[in-house]
Nucleic acid binder design. Structure first.
Length: 112
DNA sequence: AGATTGACTGCAT
DNA sequence: CATGCAGCCAATC
């Protein structure tokens, strides 16, 4: 179970762990923004939050789908196209989208 | 070690 | 309200 000969990951909670912890604090049926997570994580930028989400492995316990941009919309991935699974999971949790595909942060935004 | 990119944000135009 | 630019931290080349 060695991680490999490469540099092992930090044994103690780092920026990534804080970001994941902040996202885990988001209750179902609510959404938060990258900037908010970055602020809760402390000392990191929204861009880094997105970077951390991209590094999430499949099956992770982190509700990455509850993280949207400040516009309340789902951000596009490297592919240049948002992941349809994200919107699908949010709708399954009761989050509603408007005609523009945006979420009302005043209602579903967290913290309230 | 420097340059570039990235699931972003806020302000100015 | 749409577009452009700069700031930001970390990872990758």
């Amino acid at each position: 179970m060695n991680e490999g000969s490469s540099r092992d990951a930090p044994p103690e909670p780092g920026v990534y762990a804080r970001i994941y912890a902040a996202v885990l604090e988001v209750p179902a049926g609510r959404v938060t923004t990258y900037g908010r997570v970055a602020r809760l994580a402390g000392g990191c930028t929204p861009l880094l939050v997105g970077f951390a989400m991209a590094a999430l492995p499949a099956g992770s316990a982190v509700p990455w789908h509850r993280v949207v941009n400040s516009k309340g919309a789902i951000s596009a991935r490297r592919e240049g196209r948002p992941d349809p699974r994200q919107r699908r999971k949010l709708q399954a949790e009761g989050v509603r989208f408007d005609a523009g595909g945006r979420i009302d942060l005043a209602v579903f935004g967290w913290p309230d």
